[in-house]
Computed example of a mutant assay.
Amino acid sequence: MKETVAVFGTLRFPPESMDAVRPHLKTFVDATRNLDGCLAYDVAEDMFDPGLIRFSELWPDNGSLDTHLVAPHIVPWREAAKRLGLLERAFTAYDIHGSRPV
C-alpha cells in the first residue's frame, strides 16, 4: 500500500498579533502549497479560541515532508512567527495507509 503522511498541528499567538501574523502566514502557506509533493496544506483560525491556528497537511511520503521542513521559506516564517509572539507550537505526523470516505 502507498505510504502517505498526515500532519496535524497548532500554533498559538497572542490574539492581538493576528492581523500582523496573517500576511506572513499566507506567504508561507502559498510557498508550501507550491512544493513538489504537497498533496494538501490547510490552515484555519479557530473561531472559538482567538490566536489559535490549526494546520492539516498531507504528504505522499516522509521524504516529501522532510524536504518541506528544510525548504527555503521555513526560516523566514519561523523568524516572523517568533517576532510576532508565537506562544506555542505543537505538530504531530502520522503514517497512514489508504483512506476511505466517512
Rank of each mutant, 00 (worst) to 15 (best):
S99Y: 05
Y94T: 03
T4M: 10
R54P: 02
D49Q: 14
H73G: 02
G98N: 00
F48A: 15
I96E: 02
Y41D: 00
R54F: 11
K2Q: 10
L35Q: 15
L87C: 09
D61T: 00
A81P: 02
L58G: 00
R22C: 04
E57G: 03
T27G: 07
S99V: 06
I74H: 04
G37P: 04
L69H: 13
T67V: 15
V43W: 08
Y41L: 07
L87H: 05
L69R: 15
R54Q: 14
D46L: 06
F91L: 08
S56G: 11
D49T: 15
T4W: 02
L35H: 12
V21D: 00
F48Q: 13
Y41A: 01
K82G: 11
E16N: 12
L25E: 00
D46M: 07
V21Y: 02
F55L: 14
A6C: 09
F48I: 11
L87P: 05
G98E: 00
E57F: 06
E3I: 09
R12A: 11
H73R: 03
S64V: 14
K2E: 07
E3Q: 05
G51N: 05
I74F: 14
I53N: 01
L87W: 04
A44G: 14
F91C: 05
F28T: 00
T32P: 01
W77Y: 15
